[in-house]
Nucleic acid binder design. Structure first.
Length: 805
RNA sequence: GCCGGAGUGGCGGAAUGGUAUACGCGAACGACUCAAAAUCGUUUGUCGAAAGGCAUGAGGGUUCGAGUCCCUCCUCCGGCACCA
């Protein structure tokens, strides 16, 4: 018997599959398609991580399984190659990011191939290649031409370390997602994509897709839909008004003051216009200045202490009761949400209450909560619930809050839905990204680069030291251009696109990766998209996964595609933690390098181990000791092949029953992405063979087919060793014979009052009366002297006697 | 505070409302060996000599029967958060 030499075997099959282009997706095939996709990696210098291996193995198993079931599978791989780390590394080492990126890609590709993953390498793409980013730029222009890309002056997040602006989604807890530096706010003119136009679609679409609940909830949270009302408050002795947004129109009678964000345009206008009724202009000005100094993080951290300034001399009129109420500016009201102005109802809102207490403002109760059994009264007169009835509310007194909400909105305002989602800031002051295809001409203004002139090439010779301006601004050859409209000297936009723009459409490109006329042809998009199974980390919940959905919806609106969700089924692989239960990180020195594991145990063992660790979506700690279990399992499969005989499986025998049960179990488990239990089922199967005994060929070959998606190298080798001249991957997936998966007897539990007291083997599918009789005989002694009041019989399962003494 | 998810042996974990702890790791003992490794076998939730109790974060409930369904609470993980 040959020994199991994983190195030799794995190399042999990887080379063969490469030579055969074994896993190419077929564009012109009538077989049903399956598009199975991994989130393409950022090719970092650190190389492949065991976390990558987990997700990639899962989709590989699924892909191989679907192919054996006769499907035409598209399973591609590519590189999310633009981005800051390569550029920052370049700044440190003076090596061009193009070089480091390509080197990293080569490493990744080699590592991935060493795992035996069945990608269609003819479709490999890199977002940093002109052939690719030409179409990234085309998307920008398409959005621009449809009013979905625009340039705007505004307060933006600025990372002082990375020297670039960031999208809202890239700011986590007030810090830069990449480097952890506290983000500053700056007023800058930047490019945005109009994702907020799709806020509602992005919410409703979630109901149509099979995604983890947590991810759907996180996206909903992020979009932050809130249904309420806008209500106008007139300014006393003027023809002006302030519009507030509220979700509690029912408490309008309790509004005892207004609060505006310090940045509110009406306040700015009033100060700049020198409105005379304001009597404390200096105090107001200095409060606004102080607010400007604060970062968003400061503003969040100072939640406990409310601050603000009254606009003295200015009054608003509560439209409900015509009362004159004061107006404040305070930074607890955010300029970018709602209308940047609120009506304060201290009796029924925690924040307004705190503010009113500090500034001694009247607190007027308008909802009596006597009927609320759970009375959430904080302090003496704060109630935030919506049970009870309205009081002190004119003709609305006595109504239930939810009804009053409707009535008061109708009378004094208008229904309004707001979203927390902001438009997506896409321009970056960095080098290593796709240039924004816009030209500025003194005569013609802002001119989009004509499609025929794409791509706008990223120049190679650029000093990419960051200075707060795009390095492209310092490239003379890049900057100077003639205006496409009038031909006069003009200059190019020097910012590049956020890398998330590149990754928002790559899954379309895989359908038609070499197309030079379109980003992907309509026919091939129609054939391959949407993605049937998408696998990737959970860290992109509100970034990539939201942006990709946005792009898809835009393309549908513009008629390029006929579906509006890109990823029908999506799962996250859990994080693989280090053995100590902490996150793997270079600084902790607890990183497991997959190459080492492949070298010692083999790719097949690594694949099986990572799938066997537990449910794919769960975070779980790595345990090098445990890999040995997966390796032992494969060794046992290997060790069986000399014992294979041509004697058929004995009909109705234990092996035949178990084999059919296992086929059914493994098939269902792969379909449900429950790889850990599929593997354990195969282990059970092989444990049923006594050592050194003969193994019927039908049994062994079915086992190899089941194992093929999980451990492709060893199973292909054994298939060949069994005398086959065609490859295992071309075999049809086995189908369980339902009849043969049942034995003649079945184990029945016998319970008394729900507690198992005995058990017995009974003929399979016995009727209830027979089972009861069999069971009664077994436990006759225990039932003696007791009255059986009821008997529950679950066929093929149990018999339960309910007795009284 | 709001939203989502999860708590089961020493460890990773399994279980359509129907015999909890499958499968694997580890451990103990045994076989093989001069010895070790590898391999194979047996045992392995807990109390108990046994019969039999008791155990799925805690406490209630529904049910003939609950890890699973319902209620209250605790802990952990993830997302959002002065969002009106």
């Amino acid at each position: 018997m040959k020994s199991y030499d994983h190195k030799k075997i794995e190399k042999k099959w990887q080379d063969r599959w490469e030579k055969e282009s074994a896993y190419q997706a077929v564009d012109n095939s009538d077989s049903p398609k399956a598009y199975i996709l991994d989130m393409f990696p950022y090719p970092s210098g650190a190389g492949l991580h065991v976390g990558h291996v987990e997700g990639y193995t899962a989709t590989d198993i699924y892909s191989r399984f679907k192919r054996m079931q006769g499907m035409n599978v598209l399973h591609p791989m590519g590189w999310d190659a633009f981005g800051l780390p390569a550029e920052n590394y370049a700044i440190k080492t003076k090596v061009h990011p193009d070089e480091t990126t390509n080197a990293a890609i080569n490493t990744f590709r080699t590592q991935i191939k060493a795992l035996g993953l069945s990608y269609d390498w003819t479709r490999e793409i890199g977002t940093h290649t002109p052939e690719y980013y030409r179409w990234t730029q085309w998307f920008f222009l398409t959005l621009f031409n449809n009013g979905l890309a625009y340039k705007k002056m505004g307060k933006v997040n600025w990372c002082p370390k990375d020297q670039t602006v960031l999208a809202n989604e890239q700011v986590v807890d007030g810090k830069c997602e990449r480097c952890g530096t506290v983000v500053e706010q700056k007023d800058l003119e930047q490019w945005y994509f109009g994702i907020t136009k799709y806020a509602e679609d992005l919410i409703t679409g979630l109901d149509t897709i099979d995604w983890p609940e947590s991810t759907k909830a996180a996206q909903k949270n992020w979009i932050g839909k809130s249904e309420g009302a806008e209500i106008d408050f007139a300014i006393a002795e003027s023809d002006q008004k302030i519009t507030v947004f509220t979700t509690r129109a029912d408490t309008l009678f309790g509004a005892t003051y207004l609060v505006l964000a310090p940045e509110h345009p009406w306040v700015t206008a009033m100060i700049e216009g020198g409105v005379t009724i304001l009597t404390n202009t200096d105090a107001v000005k200095s409060y606004i200045a102080a607010t400007k100094m604060k970062t968003d993080l400061d503003r969040q951290e100072q939640v406990k202490e409310k601050t603000g300034v009254c606009l003295e001399g200015v009054w608003a009129i509560n439209p409900a009761n015509q009362e004159k109420i004061p107006i404040y500016i305070a930074d607890y009201v955010l300029p970018q949400y709602g209308t940047g102005a609120i009506m304060a109802v201290p009796a029924h809102d925690v924040r307004d209450f705190a503010f009113a207490e500090k500034f001694n403002l009247p607190i007027k109760l308008v909802i009596s909560n006597d009927d609320d059994p759970s009375k959430e009264i904080i302090g003496e007169s704060l109630y935030t619930g919506t049970l009870g009835i309205l009081v002190n509310s004119g003709s609305y007194s006595g109504m239930m809050p939810n009804n009053a909400k409707r009535a008061i909105t109708e009378k004094f305002g208008r229904a309004k839905t707001t979203y927390k989602l902001r438009d997506w800031l896409v321009s970056r002051q960095r080098y290593w990204g796709a240039p924004i295809p816009i030209i500025y001409c003194d005569t013609c203004g802002m001119v989009p680069v004509p499609e025929k002139d794409l791509p706008v090439l990223l120049p190679r010779d650029v000093d990419f030291m960051p200075t707060g301006e795009s390095p492209l601004k310092r490239s003379e050859s890049f900057q100077h251009v003639s205006c496409p409209t009038c031909g006069k000297p003009a200059r190019r936009e020097s910012d590049t696109l956020d890398t998330f723009v590149c990754s928002s459409w790559y899954f379309f490109r895989f359908a038609d990766p070499h197309d030079t006329d379109t980003f992907a042809s309509k026919e091939l998009l129609q054939k391959w998209l949407p993605v049937d199974l998408y696998m990737g980390g959970a860290e992109h919940t509100v970034l990539h996964l939201l942006y990709a959905r946005f792009f898809t919806k835009v393309l549908q609106t513009l008629g390029y595609i006929s579906f509006n969700e890109p990823f029908l089924k999506m799962r996250h692989q859990g994080i693989i933690l280090a053995e100590d239960g902490r996150k793997m990180s270079k600084s902790l020195g607890n990183v497991i390098n997959p190459d080492d594991v492949v070298s010692v145990y083999g790719a097949d063992s690594l694949r099986v181990y990572e799938m066997f660790m537990g449910p794919i979506e769960q975070s779980k700690p790595w345990n090098t000791n445990s890999i040995i279990g997966s390796r032992r399992f494969l060794e046992r499969v290997w060790g069986l092949y000399p014992n294979v005989t041509d004697r058929p499986l004995s009909s109705g025998g234990l092996l035949e029953i178990l084999l059919n049960q296992t086929v059914k179990k493994v098939t269902g488990d792969i379909e449900g992405l429950k790889f850990n239990t599929a593997i354990s089922a195969m282990m059970v199967l092989i444990n049923a063979i006594p050592p050194k005994s003969e193994v019927p060929r039908a049994f062994y070959e079915t086992l190899l087919k089941l194992l093929a998606p999980f451990a492709p190298h060893i199973s292909h080798e054994l298939w060949e060793l069994s005398g086959h001249t065609t490859e295992l991957r071309l075999e049809a997936w086995p189908v369980a014979d339902e009849l043969k998966s049942k034995g003649t007897t079945v184990h029945i539990a016998i319970q008394i009052n729900g507690k198992t007291r005995s058990d017995v083997d009974a003929p399979v599918d016995s009727d209830k009366a027979t089972l009861e009789k069999i069971a009664r005989d077994v436990v006759a002694g225990k039932l003696e002297g007791k009255t059986v009041s009821r008997v529950i019989v679950v066929p093929n399962r149990l018999v339960n006697f309910v007795v009284t003494e």
